[in-house]
Design a protein around this nucleic acid. Sequence first.
DNA 1: ATAGAGCACTCAATATAGTCAAGTACTTGA
DNA 2: TCAAGTACTTGACTATATTGAGTGCTCTAT
Lengths: 131, 131
Amino acid sequence: MARDEATFCPASRAINLLQEKWVLHIVRTLLDGPRGFNDLSRAIGGCNTTTLAQRLEGLESLGIVKKTVHSVMPPKTSYGLTPRGVELDAVIQAIDRWARRHLASSDGDVPVRRGTTSIRAGALRARASQG
Amino acid sequence: MARDEATFCPASRAINLLQEKWVLHIVRTLLDGPRGFNDLSRAIGGCNTTTLAQRLEGLESLGIVKKTVHSVMPPKTSYGLTPRGVELDAVIQAIDRWARRHLASSDGDVPVRRGTTSIRAGALRARASQG
DNA sequence: ATAGAGCACTCAATATAGTCAAGTACTTGA
DNA sequence: TCAAGTACTTGACTATATTGAGTGCTCTAT
């Protein structure tokens, strides 16, 4: 899209948002219910706390995630989805359906070294060419 | 997800794929029909040719994009979606529906400096707090 | 009382991913 | 011959993500 479309087209802006690393993972995990910071971190796995804190702050500022600090001792935090966030369920489900159809039969031992599965040229080529 | 889930859960792997920068933009653009390299680059906008070439190669290796070299003079290349790629339409449409509901009313002048809209802490906070 | 563990982060350094500007090698048309 | 279009590639640079450690709190066990 041109600069104009990037800024004015809602779909483009949503894509820009969802393509941020870990955002979809966070939403997917939170769809199962609210979680504390470390709990969420473990559930997602692979995403370090620095990045997670950044993403959570960003998502909160967009009204997708709601941070709640419980006034108990010790003070506990929980992150949950707002109604706006819950509606991303449709996106996650569409991804899930696509994945079941097209990724389910692949073998599982993707050579992930760090971070997540990358599609950088060559990384998955040998593997993908099997299917 | 734990290392196991990251590798074995199809949805997680699909998310890892779709969160790669520009992948969703490429798919969305190609949904309208095949395009040549420069044409696609212009249509997406913002994505430089280096990254585009990498993404295209990765997506091709995953059977989502099909590269066709036409034997004309000068030789023209066109990138189109495979059936597997076309099925991502459901994901794009889900994103589009969500975007229309939640992003449409926002003002358009998102402070994009380079690349795409970032949700890094603070970048959109002031803006998002308006809605 | 002190140690160890869990919570929710933050920081600085480093690694990786993405971008920019330019260049390659080709053909077409003026 | 020159400018422009095709489809990329290269190298330098920058933005972003990750690592590993550390902070300050509380709770439980010894």
